[in-house]
């Protein structure tokens, strides 16, 4: 009897050990794949930094583009990118979050909402150039916004809306059912539950989704070129803040602009090899901006998680 048990447990141990080996092998495989991906990014980034090293400096950020590679900078490009991103956030955030709240908290489950849900998911996969063409017809000509910062911001917000909606819904879904039920039990209305509990607890997740969306938008070139961003802009949009009343103005929304990826594209196609250095430097800075935004996303999520004490 005892001998039989020994045999069984011996076999069991071997079995378990074999599975553990598989387990470790898979971890190893996963690590390899992850490091390969990270190493590619790191090599790309370092290569750009090395190629563009000669240009890094304050002047590069404060100079307009120029026919002279050494004098040329990215002032109009980074300002343009920042303002376009501002419009994108201001439009995509309220609409995306509101849509997600409706779909997740309020919408009845019927064929209509099912169609909307399928469409939202599908829209996330539509090539960006399609959004550019849509925006060219709709925003630039129909709404008569012209080739402006407003048109670009609206285009990119359309582009990232599906990402924001999906991320927000995930975040809302992550709030435990018990929290909602507890609030209802205390007499809260549907809106109070959403506004006072569900939304605050999911803020971290929502902001993360928003920033991931922006990281995608910041590198987009195709739709921005389609709606007519320009290659050479040696001036800044009208400042949004002014000394006289009403202190804030929105004329910058209608100003022509250029963005970082277009500035890079323009430099890459120049005959003078000196411009390749500029393109590399601008590329490194654009990558840096994206990494910074992702870093902020991680920090925000961390802070909001810490605040939650259920």
């Amino acid at each position: 009897m005892a001998a039989a048990t020994g045999v069984v447990s011996e076999q069991l141990r071997r079995d378990v050990q074999r599975r553990k080996l598989f387990d470790q092998l898979f971890v190893l495989l996963g690590m390899t794949v992850m490091f390969a991906a990270l190493a590619t990014l790191a090599i790309l980034f370092l290569d750009l930094v090395r190629d563009g090293a000669a240009r890094f400096g304050w002047d590069f950020f404060t100079s307009f583009p120029s026919r002279n590679a050494q004098r040329a900078g990215i002032l109009s490009a980074w300002v343009g990118t920042s303002l376009v991103m501002l419009v994108t956030v201001a439009v995509a955030m309220p609409i995306g979050v509101a849509a997600a709240i409706y779909l997740e908290e309020y919408a009845p489950k019927n064929w209509f909402t099912a169609v909307i849900e399928i469409n939202v998911t599908n829209l996330a996969g539509v090539p960006s150039i399609i959004y550019g063409l849509l925006a060219l017809g709709l925003f630039v000509y129909q709404f008569n916004l012209g080739h402006s910062i407003a048109a670009a911001g609206l285009t990119l917000s359309l582009l990232i809306l599906p990402i924001v909606i999906v991320a927000t819904r995930e975040a809302l879904r992550a709030v435990p059912r018990s929290i909602r039920e507890a609030a209802y039990a205390l007499g809260a209305t549907h809106w109070e539950v959403t506004a006072h509990h569900v939304l605050p607890y999911s803020t971290g997740g929502i902001l993360t989704g928003m920033i991931i969306g922006l990281s995608r938008a910041i590198g987009e070139t195709a739709p921005i070129i389609t709606i007519g961003a320009l290659a050479f802009i040696a001036f800044l949009p009208t400042p949004p803040l002014s000394a006289e009343f009403p202190y804030v103005n929105f004329t910058w929304l209608s100003d022509p602009f250029t963005v970082m990826p277009i500035q890079m594209f323009n430099w890459v196609s120049r005959p003078d090899p000196e411009f390749q250095v500029n393109a590399a430097a601008a590329g490194a800075i654009l990558l840096g901006m994206t990494l910074l935004m992702n870093g902020i996303a991680i920090y925000v999520r961390y802070r909001y998680r810490k605040k939650i004490n259920w």
Binding site: P94, G146, F250, T251, L253, D255
Partner: peptide
């Protein structure tokens, strides 16, 4: 967003 929307009619190059 509300501010941006209210400003939309003023969009005109100067």
């Amino acid at each position: 967003a509300a501010l941006a929307l209210s400003a939309a009619p003023h969009i005109a190059a100067a």
